[in-house]
Structures are given as C-alpha cells and as structure tokens.
Nucleic acid binder design. Structure first.
Length: 444
DNA sequence: GATACTAGCGCG
DNA sequence: AAAGCGCGCTAGTATC
C-alpha cells in the first residue's frame, strides 16, 4: 500500500483495512457533513442578468412560434399539443431505413406520439419544429435552473442541498433541493469560489470502464489502461483495422478517423455496460449527426463483443447470477435484487438483465469513489489543521469539487490526484484529472 | 385547491 | 413488447 505524507507531517495509508460497504458508507459521513454545512457560493448577479436575458429570448421565441402556428392559445410547453401539431397538423412522419413509415413510440396511453428531442431533431429543417426545440432548450435553462436558484440561496449566498445517502440502489449519492448534480455545463460559471479561495475539481477518468476491465479481467481492455491508450480510439482500431491492430496497435490507432470511427466506438464503449442495442446505438449516433444503417450498428456491437470477449463473459456471469440467485453484487458486496428475471414477460426479463449487467459496474465505481472521498478527507483535515480553507463542496458521482485557499490550491490538487489514484488497488491503474479555477465553469 | 402521474431533459 | 443504467425537477394534464 502506498503511504501519503500529508501537510503537517502526518502519514497515512489509504484504507488500512478490508473495505466493505458498511464501512465504506459510514466513512464518508464526515465528508457529507462538510458538504452539507459549507454549501457552494452563488454568483447572484450572474444569474439575475442571465434571467433577464433568457426571459427576453423566450418571449421572442414564443411570439415566433405563435406566428408560425397561428393557433390561438397554443402552448409549446405542452407535449400533447406539440404532438398533435407536428404529427397531425403538419403531418410529419418518421421513416425507417427501408423508407416505410415508422412513427415514434406513443405516449399518454397511446394517445400521442412522442415528441422527444431524439425524434424531433430529424425535423430540424422545419421552421416550426426548430423553434419549438429552441423554446424547450431556453425554457429548460430558465425554468429549471436560472429562475429558481437565487431563491434557494441562504443569507450568505450559499447553496446548501440535501445529500441523499441511501436512496440509490447502486450506492451513488443523490442531491436534491436543489439537485446540484445535474447543472448544465454552460451555467456552472455562476458558482464561484469564496474570497481568497479557488475551486478545485478532481475526477476519476473512465472509472466505470476501468471497473469493467477489473471485473472482466479482459486482457485487451486491461492492456489499454496499463499502457494509457485512448480506449475509444483503440476500440476503433480493432474494429476498422483489425489485422494491423493485432500486430501494431499504435499504427492502427493512427489511422482512426475521429468522426466516423472513434465517435461511434466511444458511444458503444459507454453503452455496452447498459446493454444498449443496435437500435439504441443508431439513435444515439443520429443525435450526434452520424447516420448509419441498423445492420452496421449491429455489426459494430458484435465486433465489440468479439474484441472484448472477457467483457462478454462478465455480462454472461452477471446474467447467470441474476437468473440463478435473483441477485447481483459488486466487488465490495453491495447487492441488488433483480426479481425481474423471474417475470413471465420477456421485456421485463430483458430490463432486469440490463440492470444486472450494469449494477456491479456502477456500484463498484461508486465504492471506489467513496473510498476516495474518505481518503481525501485526511487531506481536508490536514490542511484545515494548518489554518487554511480546504473543504469538499460537491460530489458528482466520479468528481469532487473542493474549495481551497489560493496559496495551497495547487498543492492540494496534486496531492488529491495522487490520493485518488492510489485509494484502491485495482488490476488496472486509476486515472485522476484535476482543474483549478475561480468558477465551477473554469475547471474542465 | 390539492395531489398524482407523465413526458421530457439536465447530469454522470 | 421493448429496444440504455442511475438520478431529480418542471410544466402540463388528469383526477378527486
């Protein structure tokens, strides 16, 4: 076990005893306590300016939509009205690749067609549809985030949310009142460091994929992480330049095209542990402006399973456990019941198997991150004992946001990186990145 | 007027 | 029959 020397000369070895979920969960309580107590400082001016700006834009788009639609009282915020407008009044249809009409899934008990962005984006050249999409985006930003956040600040302008500790089946935390874990990238600039401080972020890169490598012991995937390769590019190299990749992986990787080859493989890398199907992959790629036949998507997924056969075996193992025991569990022993696998309905069974394949990965990643939080707390305490500010503010699943006195921010960032990378010994190395800035938006 | 549900969408 | 895991929040709609 590596030993860390903390400020003040204190030594500690990360997690000196065998981790189990009870201990892992209990040991992050001091960190949650600090996060809850300190909260994050809100830039009120930033958000009130943004609110005015958005109100004007939304009003403009509302008027444009009204002119375009011509129906009095039309509400672009109503999915039912939007559905009737697009699929009845405008008569727009979606097609499968053979050119036959295949409408989006129905909603509201079969009475409407879905107006989800992933279906409407195909109609973006229609002026009405594009205005509705624009309205939705602006309305989401304004209604969910910008308009409401100012009133949620305490008198010291700090946002203190609830950190739910036992609500998520995979062991993740969740955040509420307000949820601080789903802020859009563009709005994060409105959260700032206290005077004299910097915000510091630490994130465990590709943690779920690394847990997947550890769980499956897949030699190809493990090798990628040991050699620090870009896994998305590597996947593409094996898929598209197989023969060359087997003898000279670096040469094959150099041939990979970012848009048409790496991006689809990145999507598969993320989707595979969720049990994504060819249809889901096709939809996901289409949202990125990449259009491929269903057969191609199926081929890519099949290739993935062939290249990473160890992962395929892992998934089979999870499915076996789910069917045999009605339960799966992660490397720390956190378990999830999957009674769905005993259903008479194939759809329910499939859903249960997807959950079974995913849970050990997400839960394993979260266990590692919680151990990381516990380890990091030694660092928070050591700096605080020296009389400087050093505290956790937010946890976003695989990322910590901390607030640290300016003069120690760089040191804290580097030590935190080292601690997180060594907090749990896996069969592949962990990777931690960090960022330092004055606002949450500056950290990436 | 209060409550419950749904669709849609932000994040990892 | 559905077709991607895990969340929380909002507005619209349905129901009492």
């Amino acid at each position: 076990m590596p030993t860390h020397t903390l400020p003040g000369g204190v030594h500690f070895s990360p997690y000196p005893c065998a981790p189990n979920i009870e201990r892992i969960d209990r040991n992050i309580l001091p960190v949650l306590n600090k996060m809850t107590r300190y909260g994050i400082l809100l830039d009120k001016t930033h958000f009130s300016n943004l609110a005015v700006e958005l109100e004007e834009k939304i009003e403009t788009v509302r008027l444009l939509i009204a002119m375009e639609v011509g129906k009095p009282g039309f509400n672009p915020g109503s999915s039912q009205q939007v559905s009737d407008l697009i699929y009845k009044d405008l008569g727009l249809k979606t097609y499968d690749e053979s050119g036959t009409v295949r409408m989006p899934p129905t909603t509201h008990g079969g009475r409407y067609y879905s107006t989800d962005d992933k279906y409407l984006s195909g109609f973006a050249d229609n002026p009405t549809v594009s205005l509705i999409l624009e309205f939705r985006e602006l309305d989401k930003m304004y209604g969910t985030y910008v308009r409401t956040i100012i009133g949620k600040a305490d008198s010291d302008d700090r946002i203190r949310c609830r950190w739910n500790y036992a609500d998520v089946v995979t062991g993740r935390l969740s955040s509420a009142d307000p949820n601080m874990q789903n802020w859009p990238e563009v709005l994060r600039a409105g959260f700032i460091a206290s005077p004299g401080c910097k915000l510091v972020s630490h994130d465990l890169s590709q943690i779920e994929m690394r847990v997947g490598a550890h769980e499956s012991q897949d030699p190809t995937l493990m090798k990628a992480f040991h050699e620090g390769l870009d896994t998305h590019t590597m996947t593409a190299a094996y898929v598209f330049y197989r023969d060359l990749a087997l003898t000279a992986i670096q040469d094959a990787m150099a041939l990979v095209d970012k848009k048409t080859q790496r991006a689809p493989c990145k999507t598969v890398n993320f989707g595979i542990f969720y049990g994504q199907t060819a249809e889901g992959l096709q939809m996901g790629l289409a949202g990125m402006g990449i259009f491929q036949p269903l057969q191609w998507c199926q081929w890519l997924i099949d290739e993935w399973y062939r290249i990473y056969s160890g992962v395929t075996e892992y998934l089979h193992r999870a499915h076996y456990r789910a069917r045999r025991y009605g339960m799966v569990w992660c490397m720390f022993g956190r378990s999830r019941l999957v009674p769905e696998t005993k259903s008479a309905l194939n759809g329910i069974i499939s859903a249960g198997l997807r959950q079974a394949g995913n849970m050990p990965i997400q839960a394993g990643a979260q266990g590692i991150f919680k151990i990381g939080m516990y380890s990091l707390n030694h660092l928070y305490d050591a700096y605080e004992a020296l009389g400087v500010v050093c505290r956790p503010l937010l946890q976003i699943h695989d990322e910590m946001i901390s607030e640290v006195s300016e003069e120690v921010a760089q040191d804290f960032a580097e030590q935190g990186k080292s601690i997180l990378e060594t907090c749990v010994p896996l069969s592949v190395p962990l990777g931690c990145g960090y960022g330092i800035g004055n606002t949450w938006g500056d950290l990436k």
